[in-house]
């Protein structure tokens, strides 16, 4: 269980997060959506301890501020939005960084397995700096995966925090990465993901938190939160949800003739 209560973040004079309560269950993908500047990424960075914040965050019942870095690293992994590497590491060396952090998981076969999971088989020997943006993003997902390879460890769920995990991926890899996240959740782990793509959110998330101007204005199942009225208000344009035959909910802007306000 992730329980965040009363989260406030102030940068300079501006209050970015104005008192947020968020609860996420293991076994689910919890998506955080909202327009640019609504505070999605700041919320994720507060949850992972990257920005100073008021309020309390408990992970599996433990106050994260009281845990040592290595204790937290054994419990959760974080996928950043973009990472520039300072030195010419190979893909294998980058993925292994996760291996060293996940306590008790010193298994040499994991990097190869993780790379296959994210669609990068045989990339071990490539230089990270020579990869494309989408490949780099998936290398880091592999690193996250090896850090918390077993979704449940010693009876407690492990957690994956993803900051726009599909932002620079093509549609095939978007689906692949979201499936990796969902599989992790279905095996008992917890996933918190900041998402831009509402359709992927509708397809893969079990719970959705809709953010507007530093507050969560809607929380619940995709069907309850991703409604025409709420989305059109939050994103300040006219959106309509349809029902696609296979994937379920499908969100589209209303046609140009209807006028995008």
């Amino acid at each position: 269980m992730l329980e965040a209560t009363g989260i406030r973040v102030t940068l300079g004079w501006r209050e970015i997060l104005r008192g947020i309560d968020l609860f996420a269950r293991p076994g689910e993908v919890t998506a955080i959506v909202g327009p640019n500047g609504s505070g999605k990424t700041t919320l994720l960075r507060a949850l992972t301890g990257e920005v100073d914040h008021d309020g309390q965050i408990r992970l599996n019942g433990q106050d994260v501020d009281r845990l040592r870095p290595w204790q937290l690293a054994a419990m959760r992994a974080v996928l950043p939005q973009a990472t520039a590497l300072a030195f010419p590491f190979t893909v294998l060396e980058v993925v292994r960084l996760g291996l060293a952090a996940g306590l008790g998981a010193a298994r040499a076969d994991l990097p190869g397995k993780a790379l296959r999971r994210v669609g990068l088989p045989g990339f071990e020997g490539r230089l990270y700096q020579q990869l494309s943006g989408g490949e780099k993003q998936r290398v880091h997902l592999a690193r996250v995966l090896v850090q918390i390879w077993e979704p449940v460890a010693h009876g407690a769920p492990r957690w994956m925090f993803l900051d726009e995990p599909v932002s620079s991926l093509d549609i095939g890899h978007q689906l692949q990465v979201m499936q990796v996240a969902r599989d992790f959740a279905r095996a008992g782990g917890g996933v918190i993901a900041v998402m831009h793509d509402l359709n992927l959110t509708a397809m893969f998330a079990s719970s959705v938190a809709l953010m507007e101007q530093g507050l969560i204005t809607g929380f619940g199942s995709p069907d309850d939160v991703l409604t025409d009225a709420a989305l059109s208000r939050a994103y300040d344009c006219r959106l309509r949800t349809n029902h696609a035959p296979v994937t379920g909910r499908w969100i589209l802007p209303q046609g140009a003739e209807a006028g995008l306000s």
Binding site: R45, G49, P80, T83, A84, G98, A101, Q147
Partner: peptide
């Protein structure tokens, strides 16, 4: 080991368990 993790940035190094 900490310097290796730090190559990813300070935040990422902390998430990998580095004080």
């Amino acid at each position: 080991r900490a310097l290796n993790a730090l190559a990813l940035g300070e935040a990422a190094a902390a998430h990998l368990g580095v004080p």
